[in-house]
C-alpha cells in the first residue's frame, strides 16, 4: 500500500513538467497581454478573453493553413507507409544481391541532417518549378531522409517475424508480394502504427523546410504560421501566438488521447517480438 502511494506520488510530481507548459499555453492564450508577464505567473487568467483567438483568424488564413498541415501530414504518412514497409520488408526478409550495400546507402539518409542538404534540394525543386508548392514537403519526407527511420523500424520488426509463417504461406503458393501483402504486413500492425505516428508528427512539426520552400500565406503550414503572428514591426503578438499554438496542439492531443490505447498497445505487441 505504502509502495503504491509512493509510486503515485512520484508519478504526480513527474507530471508537472509535462503538463504545466501545455496548461500554461492554453490558459495564457486567454489572458490579455499585460497579464502574460505578470510575476508570479497566474494559473488562471484574471480577465479571460477570446480576443486572441479572433485575431488568429483575422491576421492569417489560419483555417487554410491548418488544412495544409493536416493534408500534407496525412499524404506523407500514407506514402511513407507504402515506401517504408516495402523497403523494410525487402531488407529484412528478401535475400537479394546487393541488399547489404543498398541498406547502408539508405541508412546514410538517417545520418544527414536536413540543414545539410537544404540548399541543393532547394535548387532542384526550383529547377522543377516546384518551389512554393507543397510537393517538396511531400516528396522529400516520403522518399528522402525522413522515411529512412520508418524503413528502419519496419525492418527491425519484420526481422523478428518467425520464418515458419512465411514457409506456410509459400507452401500455399504465394509469391514474394503475396507473402508480403497477405502474411507479413497484417502482422506488422504495431510497427505500422508506430511508423504512422512518428511520420505524422515529423511532418506536422516540420519547420525549416516550409520556411525555405513556401512563400505565400495560403500555402503555409502551422509551425511556420505560428512565427508570423507579429505586429507591424516584427514584435511578437504573444497572446495571438499562444492562441494559435494552442489550436495547433489541442486537436492532435485529443486525437492522441482517444487513440493512445491502440497506439501503445499496438507497440506492446511489437515489443513482444522486438
Amino acid at each position: 500500500m505504502k509502495l503504491k502511494l509512493t509510486v503515485y506520488a512520484v508519478l504526480l510530481v513527474c507530471c508537472v513538467p509535462f503538463v504545466f507548459p501545455t496548461w500554461w499555453m492554453a490558459t495564457t492564450s486567454l489572458k490579455p497581454v499585460n497579464e502574460i508577464f505578470a510575476f508570479p505567473p497566474a494559473l488562471w487568467p484574471r480577465d479571460a478573453t477570446l480576443d486572441a483567438y479572433r485575431q488568429v483568424f483575422e491576421l492569417q488564413p489560419f483555417a487554410q493553413q491548418y488544412v495544409n498541415s493536416l493534408y500534407i501530414a496525412i499524404v506523407v504518412t500514407a506514402g511513407t507507409l507504402v515506401v517504408s514497409s516495402l523497403a523494410g520488408y525487402a531488407f529484412a526478409r528478401v535475400p537479394f544481391r546487393g541488399s547489404g550495400v543498398v541498406f547502408v546507402i539508405v541508412l546514410a539518409g538517417l545520418l544527414v541532417p536536413n540543414e545539410v542538404t537544404i540548399i541543393p534540394l532547394y535548387r532542384m525543386f526550383d529547377g522543377l518549378g516546384l518551389v512554393n508548392t507543397h510537393w517538396p514537403l511531400i516528396l522529400i519526407p516520403i522518399l528522402g531522409a525522413p522515411s529512412v527511420l520508418a524503413t528502419f523500424i519496419m525492418r527491425q520488426f519484420f526481422i523478428t517475424l518467425p520464418r515458419e509463417l512465411e514457409e506456410a504461406g509459400r507452401v500455399d503458393g504465394l509469391g514474394r508480394f503475396g507473402l508480403f501483402w497477405q502474411v507479413s504486413l497484417p502482422l506488422a500492425k504495431p510497427a505500422i502504427g508506430a511508423v504512422a505516428i512518428f511520420t505524422f508528427l515529423h511532418s506536422w512539426n516540420l519547420f525549416l523546410e516550409p520556411i525555405v520552400f513556401l512563400s505565400s500565406k495560403e500555402k503555409f503550414t502551422i509551425p511556420q504560421a505560428l512565427t508570423q503572428y507579429v505586429d507591424a514591426y516584427g514584435g511578437a503578438l504573444w497572446n495571438v501566438q499562444l492562441a494559435a499554438a494552442t489550436m495547433s496542439a489541442l486537436p492532435v492531443l485529443i486525437v492522441f488521447v482517444l487513440a493512445q490505447r491502440q497506439f501503445v498497445e499496438g507497440l506492446a505487441q511489437a515489443g513482444l517480438k522486438g
Binding site: I118, I119, Y122, R123, D126, G127, V131, I211, V212, S215, S216, K217, T227, Q228, V230, G234
Partner: peptide
C-alpha cells in the same frame, strides 16, 4: 506579390532564395 518573411529569418530566407536561384 508581396511576400512576407518573418523578420527573424528575413535575411536568411532571402539569401536562401537568391542562392537557390529563386
Amino acid at each position: 506579390t508581396f511576400e512576407a518573411i518573418p523578420i527573424d529569418n528575413y535575411t536568411t530566407t532571402l539569401t536562401t532564395q537568391i542562392g537557390g536561384g529563386n
